[in-house]
C-alpha cells in the first residue's frame, strides 16, 4: 500500500498551482504532515490526488498502479479526502451523515455490518453522544469531527485530511489527532494531513512535507524538516527548535525583525 507522487503538475485554468511535486514512497501506516503557508497549494495537491483537479502531467502511484487517470468514483474507493468546507443545513442526523459517506461505495442496501462500522467509527472518535443530533445543529468544531468520521468510516487505503483541526479547541485537537494516529498504526492506511500548527505536526506526524508556491521544499522526518532554515524562510518568521522537558519537539517562532 505504498503511495508515490511523481512530478505532478496541476492548476486551474491558465494558473499553475503545483509545479513538479514529487513525494516518493509513502509507506502504509505512515502519518504525513503537509505543511506550508496559506495558498501554497496544499488543498490543490489533495484535490489532484483524489481526482477533483485533473493533473496536467505527472503521476499518482498506489500499490504499483498508476491511478492518475482512474475515474473519480473508482478512486474514491481507495482515497478518502476531507475538504475544508463543512457545516450544512441538511436535516440529517450525525449517524446518517456518516452512514451516507460509507454508502457511496458499498452498494444500495444498508447492511448490518454498515451500521456496525458507522457506530464503531463514531465511538472511536468519541462522537457517540452526538449520533442522534442533527448535523445542522452542530458547532463548527463538532461538524469538523463529523467530517473526519465521514472520511475514516470508509476505511480507505489513503486518507487525505485538509486542516482537520482548524476549528477545534486544544482538547479536541489532541483527541482527533490521537484517533487518527491510532487508526494509522492499527489499520495501516497512508494518512496525509494539511496542518498549520507545526507543534501539532511535530507531535503526531512521522514525516513532514513542506510546500511553498506549489513546490516541495523539504521532505523528511519531522525533527529534521523543522530544523531546516527553509521553515523560517517559508513562513517569514525566525524559528528555534527546542525539546520540552518531556522530550517533545517545540517550534518557537517570532516575527522576523
Amino acid at each position: 500500500m505504498t503511495l508515490s507522487l511523481n512530478q505532478l503538475v496541476a492548476g486551474y485554468g491558465p494558473r499553475t498551482i503545483l509545479s513538479d511535486v514529487s513525494i516518493p514512497d509513502i509507506k502504509p501506516g505512515c502519518f504525513v504532515g503537509l505543511i506550508g503557508p496559506n495558498a501554497s497549494g496544499k488543498s490543490t495537491l489533495f484535490k489532484t490526488m483524489c481526482g477533483l483537479v485533473a493533473a496536467r502531467s505527472g503521476e499518482v502511484w498506489l500499490n504499483g498502479e498508476d491511478i492518475t487517470n482512474m475515474r473519480r468514483q473508482d478512486r474514491a474507493k481507495h482515497i478518502a479526502y476531507m475538504p475544508q468546507a463543512f457545516g450544512c443545513n441538511a436535516l440529517l442526523s450525525v449517524f446518517e451523515s456518516v452512514l451516507l459517506a460509507l454508502k457511496q461505495t458499498t452498494g444500495w442496501r444498508v447492511k448490518s455490518e454498515n451500521l456496525d462500522q458507522v457506530a464503531k467509527t463514531l465511538a472511536d472518535l468519541n462522537l457517540g453522544h452526538l449520533a442522534d443530533r442533527g448535523i445542522a445543529d452542530l458547532s463548527g468544531g463538532q461538524a469538523q469531527m463529523v467530517a473526519v468520521a465521514q472520511t475514516l468510516v470508509r476505511q480507505p487505503e489513503v486518507i487525505l485530511l485538509d486542516e482537520p483541526t482548524s476549528a477545534l479547541d486544544l482538547h479536541h485537537q489532541l483527541s482527533i489527532m490521537n484517533s487518527i494516529k491510532l487508526e494509522t498504526t492499527r489499520r495501516k492506511p497512508v494518512v496525509m494531513a494539511a496542518l498549520h500548527d507545526l507543534n501539532l505536526a511535530a507531535k503526531f506526524c512521522d514525516r513532514l512535507v513542506l510546500l511553498r508556491d506549489g513546490q516541495i521544499l523539504a521532505d523528511g522526518p519531522a525533527d529534521r524538516v523543522l530544523a531546516m532554515p527553509e521553515i523560517g524562510e517559508t513562513y517569514k518568521v525566525d524559528t528555534d527548535l527546542e525539546y520540552t522537558r518531556r522530550g517533545a519537539l517545540y517550534v518557537d517562532a517570532r516575527l522576523t525583525a
Binding site: L52, K77, P83, F86, G87, C88, A90, L92, A101, I135
Partner: peptide, 21 residues
C-alpha cells in the same frame, strides 16, 4: 441515486470528495 443525492445535501464539496460526480 439516493445515496449520491443525500450526499449532495452535505454540500457540493463534501459530496464531490466522497466520489460523487
Amino acid at each position: 441515486r439516493t445515496w449520491p443525492m443525500t450526499a449532495l445535501r452535505m454540500g457540493e464539496a463534501t459530496a464531490e470528495s466522497m466520489g460523487v460526480n
